[in-house]
Design a protein around this nucleic acid. Structure first.
Lengths: 243, 243
DNA sequence: TTGGATAATTGGACCGTATCAATTTATAAA
DNA sequence: TTTATAAATTGATACGGTCCAATTATCCAA
């Protein structure tokens, strides 16, 4: 995986940026990099394009390639990168111990909305999994997930009390690297307040996600209600939509 | 701009997907598309890669390229694409009339945080712009923005009562297509409740963004407090980070 | 010294080729 | 029929080249 040429260049350039090896905030031009790394210009461009899409660098034709000062100076905001999709991993634990309490686990027929979102047929069944996640006994999220039985037939109570993504990867080798997310906010319901230990005026953050297998199969629909202090979503938006 | 080959293919394929011209959910293979459009395979791959990064298609080596069923069936959630960064444009108005009320407009020295985020030096000045945005007299967002005077020296009250991005583009030709966004939620303050017409239990969504010019210059730091019903952020997450 | 034309620099777009790797399909053997 | 093997399919990686467009640097003339 990591022995790809463009990935090595990518990793190396990121490292060199962090090491402040480009004090002028300007990277060498593409033709120099091509000689330096002894690769073709296409490969250089590939690595640079990925960094540009991640907001690490800006490219300006005729002028050069420049480092996003924020990436260097304030990489705390950029640490969204490299995060995992699974909640277990993506909410940085800061040494706190994550735990899962299973609130509900059953099989139900997929309603119309789930049929649309998970691309199921009428009569297909899904697992309904409701879980409460905590860090050090401080609950921070109510997770209501739906998974078609036909894509994960072997789900058990023990599995569901841990990371479903890890189970999936271990049992089938498939990984979940893509999702469609919707982020919103709402006043907390009495149930939210009880489970997440919230005051009535304190809201919840809502993250709804449809997670896909690598081949595009919708794998899970998840509705996550978060203690508002834990909703902190960072993203770099680039409307150029170039590759 | 739109006469680029890969963009034409991109637009055409999107259209054909919407027109349901691929009922098997499978696109022609890259070599066929290359013949069909009479372009090189590199150009085909470029267009397909962009669509894959947008979540429109999934590619599977050895198997083919497949349409994300959600893109076709439920394109409402995908309508984030093609949106503009400027708030005036990006919040879909549904025929409602957007308006801006200027609450505050002054020049202040940049504090330490602003110096970091906008990459300024001690002593540099910024505009502080506080605005209330509405649709049909229904306020939905309090916007507190900071813009360095040296990147937009000509800001006037009239300008600031309209779209700053449009003014910028008109006066300098520079466009804003990149931003770093942080999304959160919080209980509403008394000021929020008054300006946004919220009940005490109703929260606000918070979007903080650093907007960049095309050359990477940080242009604006904006703190947006939204009526919670208007916070609805959609995004496709792809951890493959390929170009 | 300055202004404008000219050249050099630098990233963008596109083409075309070769080889590899994952998957599916076809074929042959048990 | 089932199973193992080989072939065809299909996207991924990487190389190389040509021409163009935006920007910056250079240089000459007024």
């Amino acid at each position: 995986m990591a022995d790809l040429v463009y990935r090595k260049i990518l990793a190396d350039l990121k490292q060199r940026i962090q090491n402040d090896e480009f004090p002028t905030q300007k990277l060498p031009d593409e033709r120099s990099l091509m000689v330096e790394y002894d690769v073709s210009r296409s490969t250089v461009k590939r690595a640079l394009n990925i960094m540009a899409n991640q907001g690490i660098i800006f490219k300006k034709r005729g002028s050069g390639t420049f480092i996003n000062p924020l990436y260097q100076k304030n990489q705390t905001i950029f640490q969204y990168e490299g995060s995992n999709l699974g909640v277990t991993d993506s909410f940085k634990s800061d040494g706190k111990i994550p735990s899962i309490k299973l609130l509900e686990f059953r099989v139900i027929p997929a309603n119309e909305e789930l049929q649309t979102e998970l691309f199921l047929n009428p009569g297909d069944f899904v697992y309904e999994i409701k879980r409460l996640r905590s860090f050090d006994d401080q609950p921070f999220m109510i997770e209501l997930g739906y998974i078609p039985i036909k894509v994960a037939p072997g789900l058990s109570v023990e599995t569901v009390e841990g990371s479903i993504f890890n189970f999936l990867e271990g049992s089938t080798g498939k990984t979940v690297t893509k999702s469609f997310m919707t982020i919103a906010a709402a006043p907390s319901t009495p149930e939210d307040q009880e489970l997440l230990n919230l005051k009535p005026v304190e809201p919840v953050g809502i993250m709804e996600g449809i997670f896909f297998l690598d081949d595009g199969t919708p794998f899970e629909v998840s509705n996550m209600r978060l203690h508002y202090k834990y909703l902190n979503y960072n993203t770099f938006v680039n409307l150029d939509e170039n590759g």
